[in-house]
Design a binder for these strands. Structure first.
Lengths: 329, 329
DNA sequence: CCCGTTTGTGCAAACGTGTACACGCCCGCG
DNA sequence: CGCGGGCGTGTACACGTTTGCACAAACGGG
């Protein structure tokens, strides 16, 4: 029922020690008498004292805050990863500050705001922010860039995703099934990752003397997948749509079935990317170029731990994608 | 390229003023010469100075951090709301700290950790934490409880959800369609919200002289919806399953169709709750008791703004649910 | 010309910790 | 008995801001 939070000096008064001793009682490896410590901890519990993390951060120069830059929270693929990351951070007593760099918000200003909070680590999932901006907004904490445009000369840690082999497998199967008129439904025009993903498939096609016969651009959402698929099938007579993510693939499949009255994969094969849980639901059963989200976040966490231990040497971890076969291709 | 962040005293040295003047240059309504301010801002840009928010928070007693307690990030319903809330907070220069109170993490300890950061506001979406715990972990910042068990004597702001009327509409239609053997598939046994939702439908049934013929409990996930639906249909011969959320409803529908070889809604009607975007996808087209997520978050934001303005008077906002009709009922 | 008011700036004290340093004490060894 | 050393604790400063107070200069009206 106490309105005001009690401070270490006040607790010291109550226990009859100095505030320094209070502090020592809360750091596990400090020189302090065992009896004193337990007396302090008991009093702390009684009066509801907890050390002020803001003050500690100011003193320590370590905030134990982590800025996590994402495009959106609703997007299922990102959501799965965010969930895993947040749990991993919490288990290490780190608190995540989510920066949602949607279209509406000013990305740079948002990151600058977070930077003033002296975050210990920065994890950038969004590739809407440029590497240059990231490093000069967070000059002191080297950001961890997640599958970003490779700029060799900048010394930041990155995680690369390699889907070339999986894309090759998928194209192999589709070609064997007689597909020839491939199209690519991208999720955004401005993202480097999106271009990279397309490249995996484009290369696989090129190896067989094929190329995309048409392209379309959506917004990584179900609705955009649905809408963009229609002209692709109509105009370019595509018989295989490679989608930038799973959600768009589901939208595209629905459009193919309901609006166009065709079947998948017989008339038009649909391929997704990400390997989100929803893709394997019975009603979707998507063929998708999938990423091991656990391994992915484990990699991020490993970089954070290394960083936490004071190792500033940047590193790059590469993960390869696998294929999940479903009913749509 | 500067490794260390520059401090206000150092910048003061460079400009030839005192550190107090630096501070004033950054607060819009402070007494400071216009020429001095612009000189300081120019230097700040040049040397990359930004006021340290941690130090400011310590001085101000206001951190501009908001603890957001959620059950999970992956869950689509929560994700949509989180997305809206995070955007609203960011627009007000508030930073969200997400506390993910999944099954694995120690909820209380996590909340205590966040409390040490002196968060300005607390928004509790999860009903896995008790009101008592919430108020004594955050004694100084009154939490905003989102649709929580109504404890009249505690003075916290809450947002109530009322779905009685919508449930009545839905039951009305189902009974008219000849359904009699209703079952309820809940998402968890321990949540008060879950019980409340069931009550809406139970009351509507009672008004027509009916009652649930069986109950099952899942985990708010697709898989659990899928798994739990099977015995419900088999053993209790249900012809209408009311599900605790939309994701479970989709799982239940898939089970009814694929595993049991029945059709929805002809053999078994399926009803969801939440009204997530996915529910209206063409492949789902769920009938669901839906909540206006925009209005919901607007209510939360209004409470936060009132709180931010120093108004500590607790308030309760009630929102009523509507019905979204789909192909499953 | 004088005095009251405004304007711009510096000084110093908070805010609540962590921790280096110093100091007193007790123990044990020579 | 003297002395070195470990142990437990207090004192004081630093962390980087904000802000009340003081003060000098400029200014304007009588």
């Amino acid at each position: 029922m106490s309105r005001k939070r009690i401070t270490s000096k006040e607790l010291a008064e109550l226990v009859g020690v100095s505030s320094a001793t209070i502090s020592r009682a809360f750091s596990p490896d400090a020189r302090i008498g065992e009896e004193t410590r337990s007396r302090i901890l008991a009093a702390a519990r009684k009066y509801g004292y907890q050390p002020n993390a803001i003050a500690r951060s100011l003193n320590n120069q370590r905030s134990r805050l982590v800025a996590v830059v994402v495009n959106a929270i609703g997007n299922p693929c990102e959501a799965e990863e965010q969930q895993l990351l947040v749990h991993a951070l919490q288990a290490r007593q780190l608190l995540p500050i989510i920066l949602c760099c949607g279209d509406h918000s000013d990305r740079l200003q948002l990151m600058r705001l977070a930077a003033t909070y002296q975050v210990d680590h920065v994890v950038i999932f969004s590739d809407m922010v440029s590497l240059r901006d990231a490093v000069d907004i967070f000059p002191t904490t080297k950001p961890i860039i997640v599958s970003f445009e490779p700029l060799e000369n900048e010394d930041v840690s990155t995680i690369r995703i390699d889907g070339a082999a999986a894309a090759d497998e998928i194209v192999d199967k589709l070609v064997a099934d007689g597909k020839r008129r491939f199209t690519y439904l991208s999720g955004t025009s401005s993202s480097w990752i999106d271009k990279l993903r397309r490249t995996w498939f484009a290369d696989a096609l090129a190896r067989r003397g094929l190329a995309f016969v048409a392209d379309a651009t959506g917004t990584y959402t179900y609705d955009s997948g649905f809408k963009e698929a229609v002209p692709l099938v109509h105009r370019s007579k595509t018989d295989a749509i490679i989608c930038g993510n799973d959600v768009m693939a589901i939208g595209a499949r629905d459009a193919v079935k309901r609006v166009l009255g065709k079947s998948a994969p017989e008339d038009v094969a649909i391929v997704g990317q990400d390997g989100i849980a929803m893709a394997s639901w019975d009603c979707n059963d998507l063929t998708t170029l999938s990423l091991d989200h656990i391994a992915f976040i484990n990699a991020v966490v490993e970089l954070i731990e290394r960083h936490e231990a004071g190792d500033d040497k940047p590193d790059t971890i590469t993960l390869t994608c696998s294929t999940r076969w479903g009913a749509t291709a």
